[in-house]
Design a binder for these strands. Sequence first.
RNA 1: CGGAGUGUAGCGCAGUCUGGUAGCGCACCUGCUUCGGGAGCAGGGGGUCGGAGGUUCGAAUCCUCUCACUCCGACCA
Length: 445
Amino acid sequence: MRLTRYFLPVLKEDPAEAQIVSHRYMLRAGMIKQQSSGIYSWLPLGYKVLRRIEQIVHEEQIRAGHIPLLMPTLQSADLWRESGRYDDYGQEMLRIKDRQEREMLYGPTNEEMITDIFRSHVSSYKDLPLTLYHIQWKFRDEMRPRFGVMRGREFLMKDGYNFDVDKEAALHAYNRHMVSYLRTYERMGLTAIPMRADSGPIGGDDTHEFLVLASTGESEVFYDSAVTELKLGQREVNYDDRAAVAAICKEFTTLYARTDETHKEDLFNQIPEGRRKVGRGIEVGQIFYFGTKYSEPMKATVQNADGSILPVHMGSHGIGVSRLLGAIIEASHDDKGIIWPEGVTPFHIGIVNLKQGDAEADAACDAIYKAVTAIDLEPLYDDRDERAGGKFATMDLIGLPWRITVGPRGLKNGVVELTSRRTGASEEMSPELAVARLANIYAGI
RNA sequence: CGGAGUGUAGCGCAGUCUGGUAGCGCACCUGCUUCGGGAGCAGGGGGUCGGAGGUUCGAAUCCUCUCACUCCGACCA
């Protein structure tokens, strides 16, 4: 993409309403525009990152054997009366009437609807296990929206639901989600720690929240610092192997890590003192096992091999997709702007032409653009007739992890500069080598 | 929902107390000079001062009502 043909409304100054760094940078980098309290338009750059994050979530869910579908944002109140949550959910639920005076609601979550789909089509234990998920906009009429997309009223969430024949099978689904989530967050350059949590209005027995450590997080967290060293890495996971999946969960949940909701001072004090940490975290996902809480009232049952009719065991599993943008920026930025991890960056490489209109510089940029595109990387070429300082400032703000700088001075010696946004380190090399280096950097991401 | 604030040009703000018909910086447009970390000079465009009503010869400014947004707190992906 050439910047002169793109839509990137960057701001030089901080918008007054933005208090935390991710919100400020998302506004300044032209990623979002607020339309109403807690409701945002996603401008092209923000939308691009949102789609990349969504894509990673899809890939990891499908890898774990979970099946995507799409349910509507608007739901019928009757469905929620069946589970008893129409009255329980309270003011957070946006209730709407259609022209026939039918009571509708903008879905804050989809347990009822997915259960309805399940019971309409599944009646045998042979169809289990089954995990369905979607990535869809949700609406929760928060008392107090804040921090940009971190606590919006309208937000994009991945929510998945497992249906299993018994508790043991459902807990395997729970574990499968935990592992797939760990991989999902790692691919986004995040360290998200699973922490034992409270179940809240969703209800349930077993639940973990995934928290990204950040000083601006809304939750207070207590943890053993060794937990931040754990990495799933590139290891192969067989998601059908119950023991193997459970072993990974054990590895990631044995060390002490809890939010203030479940914190136990005596257990915390057993951690060696140097590793005892108190901090703040951003919740980016949560997994629940809730048994037959919905399947019983809503009659989602299967017939078992012995002929008996059993309510299915369920769980629900969520990732705050739009919130992740904020969380990633909170975890990865400096005083100049965002620093995107390679896995989610909106463009793989920024090309800065220091002397727009100079035949040699223009030609070199065009050649790099073509070469990068040819290896399936997406460049953003700043071809504006701007001074160097302005171009660098824009690139730093929007946070592309790699930049190639092209100027007449370097071209005289046949070199361009390859610069890491994260470290600031620059290296001179031929354009061909720079492109090869990029191919290498992005291989496997 | 309780408490505290703010609405003036795309963004950041001054002007409001003490009424006299709107200004600054950035951004934008034109020209010239500049050009490796947010340039300089000159010229220019853009605002029913959140909305409605009222007081007044006259309202961004005073009064009443209203809407929106932000921050702190209790709840949540």
